[in-house]
Design a protein around this nucleic acid. Structure first.
Lengths: 203, 203
DNA sequence: AATAAAACATACTAATATGTATGTTATTTA
DNA sequence: TAAATAACATACATATTAGTATGTTTTATT
């Protein structure tokens, strides 16, 4: 195999497996041997491609988690031109929850898990990356809410940024709390409230 | 010193210091030597009073964190007889945030930190204890919201349990997200939205 | 006062971790 | 095709940690 392709493939394998184990065990409880067992490669391979655990942590955030938030929450907001904004927002925040697998329900949101576990304890780099994820999401959602106001589908006296913050915060909070339950009651109540809430800010 | 008093005092010291270090470093990253350095006692003292780390973890939840939630969120709801319910709820969910110290802003909510870090990864005991904290809180708040409906201070067509879930979830979510920021914008937006939200469900 | 037991302290074992140093094999390049 | 280098594997040095075993001191009991 060509060396550059092989190197790239190995790197991506290690990054992907790292993400999965961080997601399942948390960042601090994951160790390099754990990761490399999953890749069927040796520790030498890891340290050939990455500096250390911190290094892979940041890369996982930038390559995997960032993309997940983009694909799941930002991208679906993009083509808001033709759609009813309140419906679009409701869809994004409830349809995903309805489609979560058992594993995703138990393990919560990868981004939120990292935010809560290492948001403030690890070096500052992590904090900046993680806040960047939320800020990107928040800005995209705020833009859509503003567009909803412009189109008179949302009340004009609302605070778009504040609403965006509440939507994102409540979503992440609920996904966290769901982790300690073994049923979907909390999700159902959340969806019920979000429906009501979005209705209340709609024209 | 009397032996039973001494024993009790030592236990309480270890529990309190454990809570503080769990809060600062997270559960998984805290080790017994870390804790005992803070108490100026030896490791032998720890294992004399507690079985292991898991044991102290559960005790910290039951003795410290449970009480914090009770004192901070449940107890203030108790004397709702004489108060306006929407105002009381708004007060509980915003006043606390305004009074948080820098440390509390950076470190987030002790309960939510544990929920997100070890909610599903550790043994089932933790999950049950942590969900119990949220359930107790949720039930107390739901009761108050129902009382608000009865007193016609809140709309009759709302879903009290769902509203309670959204309030708690958003609060915890926001406290988590705040950890990766170094300013209070996210709190201000949250407070703004919660004010608007509570107004929207009030008569 | 003598004995027992609780409250610790110290020393140690065993397991596990990170990161490095040094091999070996595959690929590239001159 | 030979030298160089990248892509790994293996072995190791070091550190850390949980938990135990066994001391010593303090308090309680008889």
């Amino acid at each position: 195999m060509r060396q550059d392709l092989k190197s790239k493939a190995t790197k991506e394998l290690i990054i992907q497996k790292s993400f999965e184990i961080f997601y399942e065990k948390g960042y601090n409880s994951t160790n390099i041997p754990d990761i490399m067992k999953e890749t069927n490669l040796s520790k030498g391979a890891f340290y050939h491609h990455f500096k250390n655990k911190c290094d892979i942590g940041k890369i996982v955030i930038n390559k995997i988690i960032k993309k997940r938030i983009y694909d799941g929450f930002i991208s679906p907001l993009k083509d808001y031109e033709n759609k009813n904004i309140p419906e679009l927002i409701l869809y994004v925040f409830t349809q995903r929850i309805k489609n979560y697998s058992e594993k995703e329900k138990q393990l919560g949101c990868p981004a939120n898990n990292l935010i809560n576990e290492i948001g403030c304890t690890q070096e500052n780099d992590f904090r900046v990356l993680l806040s960047g994820l939320i800020s990107d999401w928040n800005e995209s959602l705020t833009k859509v809410i503003k567009e909803g106001v412009r189109k008179k589908e949302l009340h004009s006296n609302i605070n778009p940024k504040a609403i965006s913050t509440l939507l994102i915060g409540s979503f992440e909070g609920i996904r966290g709390i769901r982790k300690v339950y073994d049923d979907d009651v909390i999700f159902q109540d959340y969806i019920s409230s979000i429906k009501y809430y979005i209705k209340s800010i709609s024209t």
